[in-house]
Design a protein around this nucleic acid. Structure first.
Length: 477
RNA sequence: CGCCGGGUAGAGCAGUGGCAGCUCGCGGGGCUCAUAAUCCCGAGGUCGGGGGUUCGAAUCCCCCCCCGGCAACCA
């Protein structure tokens, strides 16, 4: 019986265009999804877009669109970007989907009936011009930066979730790794949040018009985070398709960037407990990019569009380059100028050229005939282990090292000399068969990372008459 | 004392107790199957600073300096 594997990315807020950070998380999730499929697991891989909230409504207005149209447009940008990156998600959820909205209402009703949502008062600084609450941080000299006006202290009726009631339980689940938070330093960070103290949080907004109405008070809309988190259960049929839901839930991995870990590690499990559901197994928070030492931000104008990378390097190289910049769990700096360098060194020279030289020799010296041997468990096991612990750069490093040693082996054994002596034909055949098998293993290992390249290599090697073919990665000059 | 990262060769980064490594770049050499690719040798490091633990520290502990991020609604 095959194991089920349910993996998610965060759903991306449509207030922004897809950038390299979105691509990074989604590619990583895709690698895991493809790896598990390759292993024979039954995989459900979810990604999508988060579309409600005041900011979206505001952006829509600026764009001269009604919110739904605006969301349709931006959500499509994400969908296209992921298609470009060869992302193999099984479902693409949008929080404006009818099915999702119904789920959110069912879920909240359940929590409400359970007595864990109560009426309270939200107090904050409200800017009439923006028609929304501002945080202290957003203010400039105590004024709204857009309207140059002092915000008013305003109270509104809100519904609150009894987070505090569930904190001890959630803390226990995290401490005991029932909810496993990775990497380990992120677990410590989350446990630190418990020590600093956490308050009940508001699950609704009275003045935000673009959202899902609360089932028990239609005048209020669901707070966007509460809405968003539930994508993980609505996508697999909570309250709608019990068979599917039972099959997939709980999630095996929620993958995300580190800035949203609190919502996933604390708020989300607490809400799930209140609704009587299981908590996710692993919450993995990866690092952030900085670009040339600067924080990636729209105002600095240093945001990289993943579509541009794909145009320049191709899909597989883009996937490879993003995952090999720095260890997955940490933050790291990247320089766009180094991409081409790494592309040439690792992909064109090391991998691409090795494939070329092997294929060419088989074509020339063996009339395109070569037998393949069985896979080498040592190489593949090491790589599997690295992938399962989400050490993608480690996995790819092992591939790189293997390629280097194969290049060395060719130089040492000099097949071109063997080819000159008919007496050594057998030795030559055996050598090349070994290399062909080796490349097949490499292609197997690379399948989750670079699916098209991997298939291309396998195709070349499996052909009845092996020929040199086209270079896998052309050098960039 | 707010919390969390980071500071390792010219550049970019691995490495969490046992001779300091990888990629690029640089200098020299080899090979010719291959995408001017590949392979070998070499130069280049007080592992931010100081103190401590240890037979042994980039790695563990303490103090300090510098850089970045987070600090309740930021996807």
């Amino acid at each position: 019986m095959s194991k089920k594997f349910y993996i998610t990315t965060p759903i991306y807020y449509v207030n922004d265009k897809p950038h390299i950070g979105h691509a990074y998380t989604t590619i990583a999730a895709d690698v895991l999804a493809r790896y598990h499929r390759q292993k024979g697991d039954d995989v459900f891989f979810l990604t999508g877009t988060d579309e409600h909230g005041a900011k979206v409504a505001e952006s829509a207005q600026k764009a001269g669109l009604v919110p739904q149209e605006f969301c349709d447009q931006t959500s499509a940008l994400f969908r296209d970007a992921f298609k470009n990156l060869n992302i193999s998600n099984d479902y693409y959820i949008r929080t404006t989907d009818k099915r999702h909205q119904l789920t959110v209402q069912k879920f909240l009703q359940k929590v409400y009936d359970h007595g864990d949502i109560y009426e309270g008062v939200y107090e904050g600084l409200y800017c009439v011009g923006c028609e929304k609450f501002l945080t202290e941080k957003e203010l400039v000299d105590g004024l709204c930066p857009d309207h140059k006006a002092a915000p008013q202290q305003v109270k509104e009726k809100n519904y609150f979730f009894k987070l505090k009631k569930y904190l001890p339980k959630v803390q226990e689940l995290i401490s005991e790794d029932i909810i496993k938070i990775l990497p380990a330093n992120k677990k410590n960070e989350v446990l630190g949040l418990f020590r600093q103290g956490l308050e009940d949080f508001s699950v609704s907004r009275e003045k935000v018009t673009w959202g899902i109405p609360l089932p028990f008070d239609k005048k209020q809309n669901t707070y966007v985070w509460v809405d968003a988190l539930q994508n993980y259960i609505s996508a697999i049929g909570y309250g709608d398709d019990e068979t599917a839901f039972t099959k997939w839930w709980p999630a095996d991995v929620h993958l995300m960037a580190r800035e949203i870990i609190k919502f996933h590690a604390i708020f989300w499990p607490a809400l799930l407990l209140a609704a009587g559901l299981e908590t996710p197994k692993i919450i993995y928070a990866h690092g952030f990019f900085s670009l040339d030492g600067k924080k990636m931000s729209k105002s600095l104008g240093n945001v990289i569009d993943p579509n541009e990378l794909v145009k320049k390097f191709g899909v597989d190289a883009t996937r490879y380059l993003l995952l090999t910049q720095f260890p997955f769990g940490q933050d790291g700096d990247i320089k766009e100028s180094l991409f081409a360098e790494k592309y040439n060194a690792d992909l064109a020279n090391n991998l691409g050229n090795l494939v070329s030289r092997v294929l060419n020799m088989v074509e020339k010296y063996c009339a395109g005939q070569s037998d393949r041997e069985v896979a080498s468990p040592i190489l593949l096991d090491g790589i599997s282990q690295a992938i399962e612990s989400l050490q993608f750069e480690q996995a790819l490093k092992q591939v790189r090292e293997a390629l280097t040693s194969a290049n060395l082996l060719i130089d040492q054994t000099k097949p071109w000399d063997l080819a000159k002596e008919p007496a050594k034909k057998k030795e030559l055949d055996k050598l090349l068969a070994g290399l062909v098998s080796f490349l097949y293993d490499i292609a197997t290992a690379l399948l989750p990372f670079m699916p098209s390249t991997s298939e291309k290599i396998m195709g070349y090697l499996s052909s009845a008459r092996i020929i040199k073919g086209e270079p896998l990665f052309k050098r960039i000059t």
